[in-house]
Write a protein that binds this DNA or RNA. Structure first.
Length: 491
RNA sequence: GGGGACGUAGCUCAGUCGGCAGAGCAGCUGCCUUUUAAGCAGCGGGUCGUAGGUUCGAUUCCUACCGUCCUCACCA
């Protein structure tokens, strides 16, 4: 072949494609029937007949005997193309016109090589799809992060670890669904485009609807819609879907992320703590076969009871400051300064924000093993119910594992008078310049005035959860196509 | 947004204290009937991210820009 001076492996492959067509071989055929997966074929006895299909990943030629590896979702199997076992015409196009990366269908029978490798001896070969570009390096695969995310299909082909992570992700989503279904929850959907973004303190992405001439926001949380459904008599509902927030980007934050939210009438946050722990343990056990996971050098055990610690306990222990002794913002700030703890005080506008900021610096980095965090100050979440015992705190918990907040849940605020006051506080903060507060939502308040039962709801960050249990340190590793900047011609 | 690292062949990576750009894999030609990332011999393949600048000469030094990752800040 004289095409090597073109500096283009694609040109060589296009030529092979044309030659296949000349031989009457359709390079992109309609279909193919198999009797086994690649991995399944290896378990068959010698002499067994089999039809398998997959992508050719390796090819070693000895002239009259050739070995290849066919890969499908189950794994790989070695195939052999041998003079005397396969007709000469087929042997010729297999060795001359196929490339690594092509799809082949093999009909043949099992045998075992001298080296003990279970192999499918090809008796007939069907061409199932031409690849015009070379695969990444067979040993190292794709290493460049940018290339792995932008061309995830290649990463998936080349990396067993990538395939494992996304397989676990699919299993987790499916297991969570069936767990909730079995416990009487109904899966529902809520709007992604909303006139007012609600349910969380975050900046929404904005867009515009031309026909209606209205500004719309992409959802930041399904929360208030799910509560409307509970008010409508749907006592247990859940939604698993994408929300997006215009926040910073780091290994534990994505622009768009998948969140599971469920709501149960007549539950308190304490019912919810028990339920979610059992749900997580069931899901992880079934997805991984163990409750012990390795991530960022730590072994984490999700089994057993998880300890419950309050903000007050943690802060007393980690920096010696007792929240009960500092009931207002100024006093707390003075205490923190006195301890010589370096915080950017000007960005914390309330005592609650300051408590949360202090916790994130002195306590959260130590929280490796699974734990329930409770005792959140009231101003932190305008949709959560105040504690009857201490109205300054909320009936709320978070699940922390490996310093990540995996779950946030609370007894829902269902008192419309209190709700209105709490949202008005948010609006006031927004007018004072905080653009991550909640917006007023009159029709949600109207819904609440029609009456709501006691409710506890929960949000589980699916991306974080999957990253945690697969040992990934970045959420981008558990999303097929994480957001990337558009490439330009100069880039 | 601040700071840092990186960008060299289709892929994984060397390298140039400024002087004609390297390897392995992949590709092409040939040999080979038991390989396991097969092997052997030979061949081809590069705007060294982009654009400027300094210089006799820039892939190398400088500046800006593009992209990725890490980190700080913000948030989940």
């Amino acid at each position: 072949m004289q095409t090597s001076d073109t500096n283009d492996q694609r040109a060589v492959r296009l030529e092979k494609l044309a030659k296949l067509r000349e031989l009457g071989i359709q390079p992109y055929p309609e279909r193919y029937d198999t009797t086994s997966t690649c991995l399944g074929a290896r378990a068959l006895p010698d002499g067994a007949k089999v039809r398998i299909a997959g992508r050719l990943m390796l090819f070693r030629s000895f002239g009259k005997l050739n070995f290849g590896h066919l890969q499908d979702p189950s794994g790989r199997v070695q195939v052999s193309f041998q003079r005397g076992e396969l007709d000469e015409a087929t042997l010729k196009w297999v060795t001359k016109l196929t490339d690594i990366g092509d799809f082949l269908g093999i009909e043949g029978e099992l045998w075992t090589t001298k080296a003990g490798e279970r192999t499918v001896q090809a008796r007939a070969v069907s061409f199932l799809g031409k690849s015009l570009r070379p695969l990444p390096e067979k040993w190292h695969g794709l290493h460049d992060t940018d290339a792995r995310y932008r061309r995830r299909y290649l990463d998936l082909l080349m990396s067993e670890e990538t395939r494992r992570v996304f397989h676990v992700r699919s299993r987790v989503v499916s297991l969570v669904r069936s767990y909730l279904d079995q416990n009487g929850f109904l899966e529902v959907e809520t709007p992604m485009l909303q006139a007012a973004a609600s349910g969380a303190a975050a900046r929404p992405f904005a867009t515009h609807h031309n026909a209606l001439d209205v500004d719309l926001y992409l959802r930041i949380s399904p929360e208030t819609y799910l509560k409307r459904l509970v008010a409508g008599g749907m006592d247990r509902v859940y939604a698993s879907g994408r929300s997006s927030r215009k926040d910073g980007l780091d290994p534990s934050h994505l622009q768009e992320f998948t969140m599971l939210e469920y709501y149960a009438a007549y539950w308190s946050y304490r019912d919810n703590m028990r339920f979610v722990r059992e749900m997580i343990q069931t899901v992880v056990r079934e997805a991984l076969g163990t409750l012990k996971i390795q991530v960022s050098g730590n072994e984490i055990d999700l089994g057993g009871e998880w300890p419950e610690r309050s903000y007050r306990e943690l802060l007393l222990e980690d920096c010696g400051i007792d929240l009960a002794a500092h009931g207002d913002h100024r006093s707390l700030e003075a205490a923190i300064r006195q301890k010589g703890i370096d915080l950017e005080f000007k960005k914390y506008r309330s005592r609650a924000a300051l408590i949360d900021g202090l916790y994130k610096v002195v306590s959260r980095p130590k929280l490796i093993q699974p734990m329930f965090l409770t005792g959140h100050p009231t101003e932190l979440v305008p949709l959560a119910r105040r504690s009857d015992a201490d109205p300054g705190t909320l009936d709320m918990f978070q699940v922390l594992v490996n310093t990540w907040e995996i779950v946030k849940a609370y007894s829902e605020l269902v008192d419309p008078i209190d709700q209105r006051a709490r949202l008005e506080e948010q609006v006031a903060m927004r007018e004072a310049g905080d653009d991550e507060t909640m917006m007023m939502e009159e029709d949600f308040l109207e819904c609440m005035e029609h009456g709501m039962p006691p409710i506890s709801g929960l949000g589980l960050g699916i991306d974080r959860f999957v990253a945690l249990i697969t040992g990934q340190e970045s959420l981008r590793e558990v999303v097929f196509f994480p957001m990337m900047r558009a490439t330009t011609d100069s880039g």
